[in-house]
Design a protein around this nucleic acid. Structure first.
Length: 385
RNA sequence: UGUUCUUGGUUUGACA
């Protein structure tokens, strides 16, 4: 079963859910009966490719076979729903569980608290974290981190710091997530020096500084047009034995493109390849986007094909970037072809897609009717121009 | 062997 489960996980991570489901079906025939772990793995995988319906069917199938979902399975279900914006359904399930007097694990609470945070209902997240205590479930480091992140994103830096003090007081040691979230909050409030100080003083002391800490600082520097300073941090991190990753490079590449140094940006991209770091969809899209802005559509397309060749999943942002570039170069027609393609491949257009296409179509009088058509389509989906 | 928390990519406008 272990081997099968590991294999299932691999398939899910490669987004091969069809195969994963087949394997799951056939396991019993091969005399290897799937367990809760097998089901949870695939259910989680289905959510990650947004197949809610299938995930639910598998969940009920699991129940039907007499399996009792454990806390990990419950958390996976709740989180899956939340990650697709179905917070109300997640909450309903949660309430049902409470009513049945099921003893909920801290990770189930955490999943729901995170869901509330993500959809902008921070106050409900706070309420829930207070509720869990009363219900006999103590918050753990993840609970605290979830709230620290919330506060940091909302700019409530004092609350973030207060929470770190509080967890220490309760004997829960803050980890790198806790501090990285705080650092990120400080950076977003333009307090980069303070963020750096905390990294050096608090994190360094407990060996918590990691690549994410540096990436966070470097991103802040790049955003404030100090990409050079960000780049210099590379040396410092290497001295500490922390190695730049794909995120580091992507951050810098974007920084230098934005500061009108495309040559160095491209050089960094190649340096990344040279170090054996595989660019992901975000790294590719960044370069594609900047090439488009520089009217280097052909180079952008080269990257796009490269990205496909490497098996990166083309997401809505990748399509949007390229379509934007095409519109900008008055190649609206090709943009519309891509639009069709993305719809066919099951990549759903978002608000940005419609805005950019309509913007592109309006630039030429002859396309004005098509613009109108898209506008109606957009409104049907509940987007606003 | 499975779940929950942190960093990087896309649209338009207003003001200056």
């Amino acid at each position: 079963v272990y081997v099968h489960n590991v294999f299932l996980r691999c398939l899910c991570r490669a987004r091969k859910l069809g195969e994963a489901m087949q394997i799951l079906e056939r396991m019993a025939e091969n005399g290897c009966h799937p367990d809760v772990v097998s089901f949870t793995t695939v259910i989680d995988g289905l959510f990650k490719v947004e197949r809610v319906q299938d995930a639910f069917e598998l969940w009920y199938k699991m129940l039907g076979l007499g399996f009792l979902p454990d806390s990990v399975a419950c958390a996976a279900l709740i989180h899956g729903l939340c990650s697709l914006g179905k917070i109300d359904e997640a909450y309903e399930l949660f309430v049902k569980m409470i009513k049945k007097k099921v003893v909920l694990d801290v990770s189930v609470y955490n999943a729901l608290i995170g869901g509330f945070c993500k959809c902008g209902k921070g106050s409900r997240a706070e309420i829930l974290s207070a509720f869990m205590e009363r219900n006999g479930c103590s918050p753990d480091v993840v609970t605290y981190n979830t709230l620290i992140n919330l506060y940091s994103k909302e700019g409530r830096l004092n609350d973030s710091q207060r929470l770190i003090m509080k967890m220490v007081g309760k004997g829960i040691a803050p980890n790198s997530y806790s501090y990285n979230e705080l650092i990120d909050g400080l950076c977003r409030a333009n307090k980069i020096d303070k963020a750096y100080a905390i990294m050096c003083q608090k994190m360094e002391a407990s060996g918590l500084t990691d690549v994410v800490s540096y990436n966070t600082l470097m991103n802040a520097l790049c955003k404030s047009r100090n990409s050079g300073k960000a780049y210099n941090l590379c040396h410092e991190m290497l001295q500490k034995g922390i190695y730049p990753d794909t995120v580091t490079y992507t951050t810098l590449v974007n920084g230098f493109f934005r500061e009108n140094d495309p040559e160095f940006a491209v050089e960094l991209f190649h340096e990344m390849l040279g170090r054996g770091l595989a660019p992901d969809a975000i790294a590719y899209t960044s370069v594609i986007d900047h090439f488009c802005r520089l009217d280097k559509i052909d180079e952008a397309f080269d990257m796009f094909y490269d990205m496909i060749r490497k098996g990166c999943t083309l997401d809505v942002i990748a399509y949007n970037s390229l379509m934007y570039g095409l519109c900008k170069s008055f190649r609206v027609h090709e943009a519309l072809e891509l639009f069709e393609e993305m719809t066919k491949t099951g990549c759903n257009p978002d608000e940005h897609t419609y805005n950019l296409l309509i913007g592109g179509l309006c630039r030429e009088r002859r396309f004005i009717n098509m613009a109108r058509e898209l506008w109606y389509q957009m409104m049907e989906k509940g987007y606003v121009l």
